[in-house]
Simulated assay, not measured.
Amino acid sequence: MKSLSQEELADLCDLHRTYIGSVERGERNITLLNAEKIAQSLDEPLISFFIEDSESDGK
């Protein structure tokens, strides 16, 4: 996992810092296009955003 600030991530995916913050807090409905930009910036496949990680939920 990358350790990026919201501002650094925003710069990488060419989105505004406040947009990244509001997405992170669940305040915005994100488009697939912007989700793909974020995924690519994090070097993650978009599908990984939708798969529950059983290791992180205590099971």
Rank of each mutant, 00 (worst) to 15 (best):
S3K: 14
L33I: 13
L4T: 04
G21P: 04
E52C: 02
E44N: 06
S41K: 03
V23L: 15
A35Y: 15
L12V: 10
D43Q: 11
K59E: 10
I38Y: 00
L15V: 11
L46S: 07
L15E: 07
E7F: 07
L32E: 01
E44F: 14
L32H: 02
A10G: 12
Q6W: 00
D57H: 12
S56M: 05
R25Y: 05
G58M: 14
L12W: 03
D57R: 11
L15C: 07
E52N: 03
L4I: 08
G58C: 15
D11Q: 13
T31Q: 09
L32D: 00
A35W: 13
L9R: 09
S48K: 15
R17V: 05
F50Q: 04
Y19T: 13
I20L: 01
S5V: 06
Y19F: 10
N29T: 03
D43E: 11
G21F: 01
G58W: 11
L32V: 04
L33Q: 12
S48P: 14
R25F: 06
F49R: 03
L33V: 11
C13L: 14
M1I: 14
E52D: 07
N29P: 00
R28L: 07
S3C: 11
D11K: 15
R17A: 03
D14L: 05
Q40H: 15
E27G: 06
A39S: 11
L32N: 04
A10W: 12
Q6K: 03
E8F: 00
A35M: 14
L46C: 08
K59L: 11
D57I: 15
Q6S: 06
G26D: 06
I20G: 00
Y19Q: 04
E27I: 04
L42H: 06
L33H: 12
R28M: 02
L42V: 08
C13G: 15
E7V: 10
S5L: 05
I30G: 03
V23T: 01
S54C: 04
S5Y: 05
L32M: 09
D11S: 10
G58T: 12
G26L: 11
D43V: 02
H16D: 10
S5T: 15
E55R: 14
N34R: 13
I20C: 00
K59Y: 10
S3G: 05
D57C: 05
K2C: 06
R17M: 06
D14H: 10
S5P: 09
I30Y: 11
K59T: 14
Q6F: 07
S54Y: 10
I47E: 10
L4E: 01
I38K: 00
S22C: 00
E44Q: 15
E7L: 08
A39F: 03
R17K: 15
D43M: 04
C13D: 13
S54P: 14
K2S: 13
T18A: 12
E52Y: 05
S3N: 08
